[in-house]
Amino acid sequence: MLKTNNLIKIFRSDEVETTALNKVNLNISEGEFVAIMGPSGCGKSTLLNILGLLDNPSTGEIYFKGVNVSRFSERQRTRLRKENVGFVFQSFNLIDELSVYENVELPLLYLKYSSAERKKKVTEVLEYMQIAHRRKHFPQQLSGGQQQRIAVARAVVTNPKLILADEPTGNLDSVNGEEVMNLLTELNNNGTTIVMVTHSPIDADKAHRIIQLFDGHIVTENIKAI
């Protein structure tokens, strides 16, 4: 599904050059659940962004379903992204001005689904997430757990092959956190590939494989028996 080859990402400001990723080689198969761990600033989120086609590497290659996308333009990446990738963020990143329903509907709008199809899919996913009764509310009227469930709903509404989660439980209490993790596990069981950045060993435990990053390097890869 995803393969990287000597991935390097360097951030430059006026005088300082920071190497966020240094020769990262990674191979993620379809249907896998991978957790990326490591201390703050080790490059976890940078890696996730590149894997999620939000960002380009400085050098090195990234293959998405066998296609080299490392030099894709923003427009090409967007096209690929909207059809294949769903995102879940630590801070939910819901749009405050849109209702629950509208937030979840948004990716479908960008995929040009018809209004009837959108309605069907959004209703389905909201019911699946058990949050259909909140469809007319606005994000700020909901609890953190509810907000993250909506964010997950938004990520999966298009049936993406890949879900990238950046510390999905980071802003949640343990009860809500567990609920979200259960959702992700269930999605994975249904065949969705999941790559998750996390600080929590408990959450990481749900993954098939744990990748430890340190200063932009992959230090260890723990493959768990499925």
Binding site: R75, R79, K82, N93, I95, L106, L109, R154
Partner: peptide
């Protein structure tokens, strides 16, 4: 800025 970032992350093209 942020809202546009989110929209782009979930697939908004330039025209959107």
């Amino acid at each position: 800025t942020k809202e546009i970032g989110i929209r782009k992350a979930i697939g908004a093209m330039e025209v959107d």
